[in-house]
Simulated scan of single mutants.
Amino acid sequence: MNGAMTTQLSFPRFTRIGAGAVDELGTVLTHLGLKRPLVVTDSYLTTTGTAERLTKALVRAGLSPRLFSGTVPDPTTASLEAGLDVAGAHDADSVIGFGGGSPIDTAKALAVLAVNGGRMRDYKAPHVYTGPALPIIAVPTTAGSGSEATQFSVISDSETDEKMLCPGPSFLPIAAIVDFELTMSMPARLTADTGVDALTHAIEAYVSRKANPVSDALALSAIRTIAGNLETAYRDGQDRGAREAMMVASTQAGMAFSNSSVALVHGMSRPIGAHFHVAHGLSNAMLLPAVTRFSVSGAVGRYADCARTYGAAGDADPDGVAADKLVEAVTRLCRELDVPTPKSYGIDRREWDSLILTMAKQAVASGSPANNPRVPGISDIEELYRNVFD
């Protein structure tokens, strides 16, 4: 940690965690003086009736909600337009992101654009937005993205396919409602991918060049919890203890990386998602073992801490040995969770190869690789993309 720099920390003002927390949503909005929320969700949560249950509870609490269910996986600038129209027509005074990372990212983008206007590309990193926005309330239904606790929104530019990281305190939810019961119905694949996403957030926050004592504590706590619970939640989705632990760890990991940063895995993961429409957690999982192996030499002691916390190494192991054991542990985890390679996922080799240079440039442009313990050149990133393919 750079001693000359102050550490800036931002967290949601209100966080409610635990079974049944979602029932307190109306109370939280009332405390905030909000009356006309736009509930931003996806068609899946609408079909299951979960979104309707949420809006009905808000109506019972005396609020006037409006539902927008047009979010898409990996939200695009084009997908925001309909939401902006609905927000305007409803005269929304707040936005509730209800779902996985995509609805929450969409809600954050709508909250900023509804008040401030402009185009999403005006907000992409390195620009940091601190201006006006509607209050954001986040209600996650997956244990993974941690978006309920972060000051980032990730939106793909429909014209260029670039997955843009848009940072700033104005994207941070004012309130997060973290209720693990909403995750009980997640299928095994989604449980695995979102769980590895959370683990990646925690490891990258801890080894990042922007790490600090507060993000460190949250990151290590998340790593310990995920190590003990992810495989259980994957094999038995009805295990309430594992589901609850993963939900808390996901929020901790979100708080950690929002106040530190992510690094090379995320930098390389976003372009895979943008060009090949691979879910974000899954593209992280495809990369995590290889990128960790590449990065270890830049922060052996930090990776060793992660290994010991994960339970992959003991106190007697020298740092170098412990760090290598972390690489082995995440490799084994991805195998246990049946994480596919890009090849086995069905991506065409020629198309992959033809996009490697573009993806490498987009990874660097996002800024995340510069926070990596070992900062890669473009050619290093190209080589990693080639290696992970099969």
Rank of each mutant, 00 (worst) to 15 (best):
M120W: 15
M120C: 13
M120A: 15
M120H: 09
D122F: 06
A125P: 03
P126Q: 10
P126Y: 11
P126C: 11
H127E: 09
H127G: 01
H127M: 11
V128P: 00
V128G: 00
T130M: 07
G131N: 12
A133W: 00
L134D: 06
L134I: 10
L134H: 05
P135W: 12
P135D: 06
I136T: 14
I136F: 03
I137N: 03
A138F: 05
V139L: 08
V139H: 08
V139S: 05
P140R: 07
P140D: 07
P140Y: 10
P140K: 05
T141E: 08
T142E: 11
T142A: 08
A143C: 14
A143G: 09
A143V: 03
A143M: 04
G144I: 11
G144C: 11
G144V: 12
S145E: 02
S145Y: 01
G146W: 10
S147N: 07
S147D: 07
S147H: 11
S147E: 06
E148Y: 08
E148P: 04
A149R: 05
A149V: 12
T150K: 04
T150P: 02
F152M: 06
S153C: 11
V154L: 12
V154H: 02
V154S: 05
S156M: 13
D157A: 06
D157G: 14
E159K: 11
E159S: 10
